[in-house]
Simulated scan of single mutants.
Amino acid sequence: MGEVGKRDDAVDAVTWGVRVAAAWSWRLLAIGLGLLVLGRIFVRIELVAFSFVLALFFTAVLHPLEKRLRRIPGPPSLSAGLALLIGIAALVGIAWFVTWQISSHSSQLADQMTNVVDKTKHWLHTGPLHIKSSELDKFGQNVTKTIKNHQGAVVSGAIATVRTLAEAVGALLLILLSTFFLLRDGEQIWNWTLRLFPRRSHGRLDLAARAGWGTLGGYMRGQVLIALFHGVSVMIVLFVLRVPLAAALGVLIFLGSFVPLVGLTVTGALCVAVALLEHGFTAALVVAISIIVLVQLEAHLLQPLIMSRSVEVHPLAIALAVLTGTIVSGIVGALLAVPFVAFANTTISSLRADPALPEGDSGFPVEAKKSPLGDPVDLAKPPGEDGPEAEPSAHV
């Protein structure tokens, strides 16, 4: 008995704060272990996982179009197929336009690059650094020698590129197939997924997931409009300044705008560099000021006007999400990070909100009705279940 009493005293001697910290610690360790296991699984199936996530994003963008196309008489596969073909046509058109612009101006680009190299060498020789021409020539020879000595690495890199290209083709086919079935059978797929969870949580999960899906779709479609505004505005400025490849650079601005904070900065710097090479400092300054004005318009006008309040994400969360996504998965991670954060933010907020409405026999939320006194009637309970002893409502 004495030993038992000592153990009880030892347990009682642990303060409440330490107990709470210990409880939080082992739970956080369990959550971290679970996330680690999920991360290892994700790495193993990274190609499939990213392909399906991209398919979800394309589905969120094309879903309103597919709903409109349902008015056309025919099976559901018709509207889903037409929406997918329209989306593919838009992407192929953008890719073709950029390729055509670059190929048609390839000689001009080569001349500009040669001019840049010559000007750089002249500045290094006559500028404040006063680098000798012999040292510059020696540096060029060293670069050429390094490339020749590492031809094997170049060949292996080419082989890796071919392998990556084959994986990209497979991922593209998987994205198209997944997008088609998500457009056609999205409701059935979600209902099947919902049945994997306990029946009592169906109502709350359904409401939270649909809220998150609405946020994801709103974010993606709003981002398309904002990116289109950026691309067209910069292209008009470049056309006025007669900068070569103005249309192609406008498309790059459009694509870069899908990566918040970073994308527009990088592609905008490229536009400034091209304007600087072609027309000098004044044109580059005009382009830079135009891009800064666009960033301010997006922050203070386009985001509040196009994006609803539920879609807004704090700038710090956007910066952290973009940086984390870039570190984890490069450009693809940067593209997917902010939409994922927007979806998770709305879903978690919905889960933390008031409990879902009571469920009926089907497992889906049952709409509450008002009694003549204004009190909600629980349709999930049969009449009289509370019995005659139930206390009257406080409103009466």
Rank of each mutant, 00 (worst) to 15 (best):
T146R: 07
F239L: 14
F139Q: 06
M235W: 13
H150Q: 11
T144M: 11
L249I: 02
I147E: 03
L205R: 08
G186L: 01
G212R: 02
D137S: 11
R210W: 10
L177Q: 01
L174D: 00
I159R: 08
F181M: 01
V224W: 05
S233K: 06
V234R: 00
L228E: 06
G214K: 10
P244M: 12
H122R: 14
R221W: 09
I131K: 05
I175L: 14
T193W: 09
G157M: 08
L228C: 09
L241Y: 05
G140C: 02
H125D: 07
A246D: 04
T179H: 03
T146F: 08
L205S: 04
K145I: 07
R204K: 15
A208S: 13
I175R: 01
V154H: 06
V224H: 06
T146A: 11
G157K: 04
P244W: 02
V224Y: 08
L196M: 14
Q188H: 13
I226Q: 02
I131P: 04
H122S: 13
V155N: 00
M220L: 15
T215Y: 11
G203S: 07
F197K: 02
V162R: 00
A166Q: 07
G170C: 03
A171L: 05
I175H: 05
S201F: 07
Q223I: 12
I236A: 14
E167K: 14
I131T: 12
F181A: 03
R184V: 00
V143T: 08
A211K: 09
A227E: 01
L194V: 07
I159Q: 08
L249V: 02
L174V: 13
R200C: 02
T146H: 08
A209Q: 09
G157S: 12
